[in-house]
Amino acid sequence: MAEIIIPELSQLITEVRAIRTQMDRIEALLNEKEGKEYLALTHVAKELKFSDATIKTWCVQGRRHPVSRKLIVLKTYKSEGGRYRVLRKDLEAFKEIFTTK
Rank of each mutant, 00 (worst) to 15 (best):
R88A: 04
E80V: 00
E96L: 15
R83C: 06
H43K: 15
K95C: 15
T54M: 05
A18K: 14
L12D: 04
E37P: 02
R85I: 10
C59H: 03
I55A: 00
A53Y: 00
D52M: 07
D90G: 09
I4T: 12
Q11T: 02
K36Q: 11
P7F: 10
R69P: 00
V73L: 02
Y84I: 07
L87D: 05
G81W: 07
E15N: 01
I19G: 06
L41T: 13
F94M: 08
T14N: 09
G62Q: 00
R64K: 08
A28Y: 01
V16D: 14
T21Y: 05
A2Q: 04
C59D: 03
A93P: 04
F98Q: 13
T57P: 03
L29Q: 13
R64A: 09
G81M: 11
M1N: 10
G35I: 07
G81H: 02
M1L: 07
K75R: 05
K101H: 14
E15S: 00
V44T: 13
E15A: 04
R69S: 03
A2T: 04
A93L: 14
T21D: 14
G81N: 10
E15M: 02
L91W: 08
V16K: 14
R25I: 08
T54Y: 03
R83T: 09
A28F: 08
S10P: 00
E92S: 15
L12Q: 11
I19K: 11
L39T: 01
I6C: 03
V86W: 09
T99N: 10
K33D: 06
E37N: 11
G35H: 06
R88V: 06
L29S: 07
V86P: 04
L39E: 03
E3S: 13
T100I: 15
L48V: 12
A45I: 09
W58K: 01
